[in-house]
Design a protein around this nucleic acid. Structure first.
Lengths: 180, 180
DNA sequence: TACTGCTGTTCCGTAAACGGAACGATCGAG
DNA sequence: CTCGATCGTTCCGTTTACGGAACAGCAGTA
């Protein structure tokens, strides 16, 4: 999977300031309520500091919003994006002999996406709900239409691409077998 | 709104460790890939450090998961909870003369919930989709069934409660007028 | 056995995030 | 105008998160 969208420190500061001003409370007051220094909050809002998880939580808690409200653009789901693939992590199952990660993914038509190889033993399982997907090992990709299911060993570079001009909707199950 | 669910530092560490071990890579290797010290990662996984947003992001980026995957229990939506009310922030609009926060909320039957007063000028607008809601100023609450809409000034303590034994589904729009 | 390479933890000096105090600016009251 | 209060920023000493090195423990090899 490609790297997640970055939480820009200056954008985080801007969102904190916007939420604070919306509530009509001063920087000094919020710092007092959240029990952090005014210098800390000032630096955070101006993007000149690299806040600790603890301080950021203390502030968002006082603003009455979840941490995600300042980390990302509100409404934006916690997404893992690439050029063509847009996936969001739904669940993680920690079984006794493997870990499973369940993603809901959408693949835009027109562009391919190459993912690097995973650890040996890791497998990917895709179920297509809409569109036509071409995915699998880079040297031998498979094709699946709505309702179809694909699986491949992902210890080699693999690709994702939408066939035709319809966006592909699918679920991706990543299976990481436990090391013995 | 009540405080969000807390991101327990030890739980964050446990989730990072679980994700790392699922991928079958060592602590040393992940530290090298993420360009952080081994001591940093070790302390983070064991919950003895209070990580910076920057370091936490560098690590989750290498694991290929969004920040939220380690902050909260996977699958748990970024929710703002209280005894009876379960709300998730959907959107924030920064208009020229006001800020709007849109929540989707569910209210469990049986228990009431009291919210403290907001800033003067703040108004709440609730649209009920299912169930019967009793909400508004603590001294004069209003009642609304599915399809109804409520509004009140929230500069006084206010309550939320489900009437009957059906769960209430509704949207809540909080309006913070801009200071002149 | 000793050696090599790796694991994860601990020690330590440095860099920086922290809270508190001091600062100039702005506002309203007298 | 002066006073007092509060605003947000800046300075500063303390605390602590940081990266690198040293460490013990364990596997595989000669």
């Amino acid at each position: 999977m490609p790297p997640p969208s970055e939480p820009d420190p200056t954008a985080v500061g801007r969102r904190v300031r916007a939420l604070r001003e919306a509530r009509g409370i001063s920087l000094s007051a919020l710092a007092r309520l959240a029990q952090v220094g005014k210098a800390t909050l000032s630096g955070l809002e101006n993007g000149t500091r690299n806040p600790t998880l603890e301080t950021l939580y203390a502030i968002t808690a006082q603003l009455g919003v979840p941490l995600t409200a300042v980390l990302f653009e509100p409404g934006a789901e916690p997404t893992v994006r690439g050029a063509a693939v847009n996936a969001i992590l739904l669940e993680v199952f920690n079984d006794s002999d493997a870990t499973y990660e369940l993603y809901r993914m959408r693949i835009a038509p027109g562009t391919d996406q190459l993912s690097p190889a995973h650890q040996a033993g890791v497998t990917e399982h895709v179920t297509v709900f809409a569109g036509v997907l071409r995915a699998g090992p880079a040297d031998a990709p498979l094709t699946a239409a709505a309702g179809d299911h694909l699986r491949w060993a992902s210890d080699v570079p693999h690709v994702y691409a939408a066939v035709g001009d319809e966006e592909v909707a699918a679920t991706l199950l990543l299976r990481y077998p436990r090391k013995p």
